[in-house]
Amino acid sequence: MLMPWHVNGTLDAAEAALLEAHLTECAECRADLEAESALRAMVAAMPHDATPAEPARLPRLRQPAPLAAPRRFFARRVPLGWMLAGQAAAAAVVAFVLVVPQSQPAVDPAYRLLGSDEQAAAGNVIVLFAPDSAEHELREALGQVGGRLTDGPTASGAYVIRVNAADRPAALERLRGMRQVVLAEPIDADGGP
């Protein structure tokens, strides 16, 4: 029963060991193994009728709607080029926000930019946790680097934390090594790389 998965190498060690032990003493199964390998090779080599044209066809996507709204990506067909241009513009805005705001006054009290005034000014690391991270894992991560949460979640779900400036390089390295951390970057100049 397990021969196909022995041939494709997905059995766990115990299953594979049992099967291999049996193969050493069963000529019939050894012959079966050869036939199984041949069948696997033939099926794997079969072409399918739906081979995508080259270059790979991409769906045309529309810009994502605000997070709260349902997002029907394919509902409105917008050429890919426009979408990518929009993303480039969005990336430029993010870069601007990350680099410039420290010297910018708060424009409107209704908005708070990373690095501007009060809480955000105190943060010096931005951290993005894996989507499946539990709250205790976030606390654990902060505890391990002696960090204090100063802002977040941001629109992208990231958190701004404050760590001791002198320890920041080590804290960043430690954060980046954590399973639940997708991204950890410095966001101001003190103790920068």
């Binding site: 399918h48 081979t51 995508p52 790979a56 991409l58 996507l61 810009q63 997002r71 990518l84 993303q87």
Partner: peptide, 21 residues
């Protein structure tokens, strides 16, 4: 999950052929 279309396209390209098969 954050709405990054470029990442989506990369994922699409990665799985397109295997899914089609």
């Amino acid at each position: 999950g954050e709405g990054d279309g470029e990442a989506f396209h990369e994922l699409y390209r990665k799985y397109q052929s295997r899914l089609a098969r």
